[in-house]
Computed example of a mutant assay.
Amino acid sequence: MDSAFEGTPRYYGLCAIGGMLSAGTTHLAITPFDVLKVNMQVHPIKYYSISSCFTTILREQGPSALWRGWAGKFFGYGAQGGCRFGLYEYFKGFYSNIMGDCNRSVVYFVSSASAEVFANIALCPFEAVKVRVQAQPCFAKGLFDGFPKLYASEGTQGFYRGLIPLWGRNLPFAVVMFSTFEHSVDLLYRKVVKKRKEDCSITQQLGVTCLAGYAAGSVGSLISNPADNIVASLYNRKADSLMLAIRKIGLTNLFTRSLPIRILLVGPSITMQWLFYDTIKVIGGLPTSGEVVTDSGRSKVG
C-alpha cells in the first residue's frame, strides 16, 4: 500500500465501509441467538435456559420468530460498525500524533471511547425498535413499521431511552475490545509467530486477526454484560429508570443473566467481524489491523 494513502479521507472511508459491512453482516447472521438472548433477559422466569427459550419460542411463535429484528440488526449495527471502526482509525491517528508511541494503551483507550460515543448515537434508534420487536411480538413486524409506531407512542425520546445504558454497555466493550485486539496482535506476532508482520502471508495475517478478534470479543462480553441486561429491561419497559432496572434485576443477575449465551454470541461474532473487516481492508489495498512493537518503536501496520 502507498504510505501516502494512510491518513487520507479515502483511507478512513474504506475503513468505515469495511466496518459497516463486517458488523452488519455478522450481526444479521446471529439474529436467532440475539432473539434468544433478549427474551431470556426480558422474561427470565419464562425463559430460564437457552434450550427452554429456543423450544418455547419455536412452539409458540414458529421458526420465523427467530429472525425477528433482523433489519434492525443489519442496518443498526452496520451504522454502528461504520462509525466504530472508521472513527477508531481516525482517532487513533489523531491521538498518536499528540501522545506519541510511548502511550499506546492510552491511545487505544481514548480512540475507541471517542469513536464509540458516536457509534452508539447512530445505533440507538435501531436498537430501540429491534429489542421491542424481538421481545414483544405484537409490537411490530419489523424495523420499517416499528419506527413510526415507536415515534407515534413515545416520540424522539423513545428512540434514545436506552442511550446512557447503551453507552454503559458498549463503551467499556469497545475500549476492552480494541485494546485487547491491539495487544493480542502485538503479542502473537512477537511471541508466537515470531516473524515480522510484513513477512507473513495474507492467510497467516488473517489467522492472527481471528485469534486476536476472539480474545477481544470474549473479554469484552464479560465486561459489558451488566449494561446489556439493563438496556433490554429499559427498552421493554420492565423498569422506567436506570436505578429501578438495577434493583429489579438484582446485582448478581446483572453479571450472570444471559452471560453464557452472550459469550457464545459475542466471541464468534467479533471474530467474524475482524476477519471480514480485515479481508475488506486487504481487498481495498490496506494492511490488516493491529500494531506491532519493534525494537525501534511502533510498526505502522494498520
Rank of each mutant, 00 (worst) to 15 (best):
A4R: 15
N229P: 09
A174F: 06
T288H: 04
P44G: 00
A216S: 15
A216D: 04
R68W: 03
A152E: 15
D278K: 06
A227E: 04
Q157Y: 12
T279F: 08
R132W: 01
S153F: 02
S52K: 08
K149R: 14
T294S: 04
L163Y: 02
N120C: 15
L234M: 13
P9N: 14
T279M: 11
D34L: 15
D186A: 05
K92P: 00
S241P: 15
K92V: 07
T55E: 04
V293N: 00
F33T: 13
M20W: 14
S111R: 07
G76P: 07
S224Q: 15
F5N: 10
M20K: 09
P9D: 13
S22L: 10
S224A: 15
D278L: 10
F5H: 11
K194A: 10
R161A: 10
P260S: 12
F181I: 09
T256W: 08
P9M: 10
G24A: 05
G18E: 05
R298Y: 00
C138W: 09
H43D: 01
E127S: 13
L222A: 13
V129I: 13
A113Y: 02
A122S: 14
P148N: 11
A245D: 03
A79G: 09
F276W: 11
P32S: 12
F85P: 00
K73N: 15
I223S: 09
P226C: 09
A23N: 04
C15L: 14
E291S: 05
N253E: 07
S52Q: 11
Y108G: 01
N236I: 02
D186C: 11
R10T: 15
T26W: 03
D2A: 11
T25M: 12
L206C: 09
G220S: 14
K194S: 07
A216F: 06
F173L: 10
L187K: 03
Q157G: 13
H27I: 10
L150A: 07
T209G: 02
F178E: 13
G207M: 08
Y95W: 04
Y47I: 05
K37R: 09
P226W: 06
L171K: 03
P125V: 06
L14T: 07
L166R: 00
G19S: 11
L87D: 02
A245M: 07
A79H: 02
L286K: 10
